Amino acid sequence: MKKLIISSTSIINLSESIRTQERLAIFLALIAGYIDATGLIQWKTYVSFMSGNTTSLGAAISTGKSGIITTSITVISCFLLGIYTGTCLSLWKRIKNQILTFYIVSGILIFYSIIAYFYNINNLSSIAIVGFSMGMMNTIVTSVGNQKVNTDFVTGTLNSLARNTAMLTMTKDIAEKKEYQSNAVHLLLLWIGFLSGAFIAPFLLDYFGKWTLMIPALLLMIYGLLISKINTKN
């Protein structure tokens, strides 16, 4: 009986943990979509979609467009540096959770927005700063349950969605069907989150102008504080 109670409690905790991961992943995907669309509109460059920047880099090298080459290399390098930094923070034994990454990314965006309001920051510096913050943000959530996810770009998300859907339709095992269905739902919601963020960015950009990145910055700060309070209570 005791073992059954422990087992049931573990299952409930695991289920709640997965739901928390899912909500956080969708939230971060929405933020990433918003900032990526903002970067595309303002600087004609993706700040989190590195597949598009890699394609642009390859085409620019063959056509000799030095401006695009410089921009693409800068944003890709800073995005990778952001992932490296975020991963190192997540592996640092003195840090017990990912809350610090929330605050760092939020702080970068807030600091950038304030400086950009009073001074003109060139496009190259802008994409370097924002690209670095997007790389860091991509390390906050790397999986939902057993399903690996990327919150900053959708190519891998759509690939995994199609694969899980295919496996769902092909398998006859009930347990596998539940797992693939759950994964497919997580991935679909993640894609919708990114799409929604990209959808609302142009409207808010027209309204808030240079303060547009303060919105995701404050949302990240608030979400980080909420998670911190929940962790403290637990």
Rank of each mutant, 00 (worst) to 15 (best):
A175D: 15
S72G: 03
I129G: 07
L218Y: 07
V47A: 06
S17A: 14
I174E: 05
T87N: 14
L89P: 08
Y34Q: 03
I41M: 07
F153H: 13
I174W: 00
K229A: 09
I12T: 08
T142A: 00
G197M: 03
I192H: 05
V75C: 09
I227M: 11
L81K: 04
S77M: 09
T45S: 12
F194R: 07
I110H: 05
E16A: 14
A59L: 15
R94A: 11
Y207E: 07
S56K: 15
E176S: 02
A116I: 00
L168A: 04
T87Y: 10
L189R: 10
F203H: 05
S106Y: 10
S7A: 06
L220W: 02
K178P: 10
K148Y: 07
K65G: 00
Q147I: 03
K229M: 07
I6G: 13
V75F: 05
V141P: 04
M136T: 11
G135V: 06
S160R: 09
T85L: 11
G131F: 02
F79H: 05
L57D: 13
T9W: 10
M214Y: 00
I99K: 05
I76L: 06
Q42L: 15
M134N: 12
A217Y: 04
S10Q: 15
I140C: 12
K65Y: 01
L219I: 00
Y84I: 14
L30Y: 05
L220R: 04
T55W: 07
S106I: 08
V149P: 00
M221N: 13
F194P: 09
I108Y: 08
L24T: 13
T55A: 12
A128Y: 06
I61E: 09
M137D: 10
I5S: 10
Q147A: 05
T38C: 11
G131Y: 04
M170I: 07
I18R: 15
L190C: 09
I31H: 05
F49R: 13
L109E: 14
T232R: 14
F111D: 12
